[in-house]
């Protein structure tokens, strides 16, 4: 069954068409990679799904409900969560409180006390391996820890779909491996569906089940990772960049 359906979605910024008549579908439980050269519209597409922007044309349906015009908090409460390429923590809150915001606001929980919220948050932190850092201010965490924190915050809202915007950027190989393992663990444990933007092709090829390629706001190719790597159009879009 299709969890997310994007139908003919277009988003313009002034004269620039960032996302151009894009249609795609993600099934429940799928891990879908979203790739494309810089400026292809990948992050814009994520912002459209999350409700940060509203598209000029087209329709976005999540779990049978039209979410095209919903506010970000409504999209979140329906079960869509996202992480940022450049982490956006609450800098002067502890790691625990950062996750607590997701616990207390990500779903309607009017009767949950702050203390109960923090308890739930500590479970999420434990899951991503940050329990030991729970009382550290987010501004003092390393990039790797911030990425893990973003994932914990995303989990805290009990999502069904997680939009991941570049987990690997700026991490070294060892950290990258831990991050990938963490995402795999999340998929295994919570059975979430994932739409995953990543520049490191190796990861996309290994970790995702299907890949969608954006170029100048349009989908130019879509298919199994192996097929995509050999698609001449994709290779041309990357203009000599080696894939796979």
């Amino acid at each position: 069954m299709s969890l997310l359906t994007i139908e003919n979605v277009t988003k313009r910024f002034g004269g620039l068409t960032a996302v151009d008549n894009v249609s795609m579908e993600i099934k429940e439980g799928e891990i879908v990679g979203l790739i494309g050269p810089n400026g292809a519209g990948k992050t814009t597409l994520m912002n459209l799904i999350a409700g940060t922007f509203n598209p000029e044309e087209g329709k976005i349906v999540f779990d049978g409900h039209d979410i095209t015009k919903l506010e970000p908090f409504q999209v979140c409460r329906r079960g869509v969560s996202r992480t940022y390429q450049i982490p956006r923590p609450f800098p002067d809150m502890t790691a625990l409180m950062n996750v607590g915001v997701g616990v207390l606001c990500g779903k309607k929980r009017p009767n949950m006390s702050l203390v109960d919220g923090m308890l739930d948050a500590s479970h999420c932190l434990e899951f991503v391996g940050l329990f030991g850092k729970r009382n550290i201010l987010a501004r003092d965490l390393s990039l790797f820890e911030l990425r893990a924190l973003e994932l914990a915050r995303a989990l805290a809202t009990t999502p069904r779909l997680i939009l991941i915007d570049e987990v690997m950027a700026g991490l070294n190989q060892a950290e990258g491996r831990v991050a990938i393992r963490l995402i795999e663990k999340i998929i295994e444990e919570f059975h979430v569906t994932i739409l995953w933007i990543e520049h490191v092709m190796k990861i996309i090829m290994e970790a995702t089940q299907r890949v969608v390629v954006l170029h100048y706001g349009e989908i130019i190719s879509s298919g199994l990772p192996g097929e995509i790597a050999n698609d001449p159009q994709v290779i041309e879009a990357y203009l000599g960049e080696k894939i796979a």
Partner: peptide
């Protein structure tokens, strides 16, 4: 502290 993230966390 972080408007954008607050919105997206509900």
């Amino acid at each position: 502290q972080q408007l954008e993230a607050s919105r997206l966390l509900g």
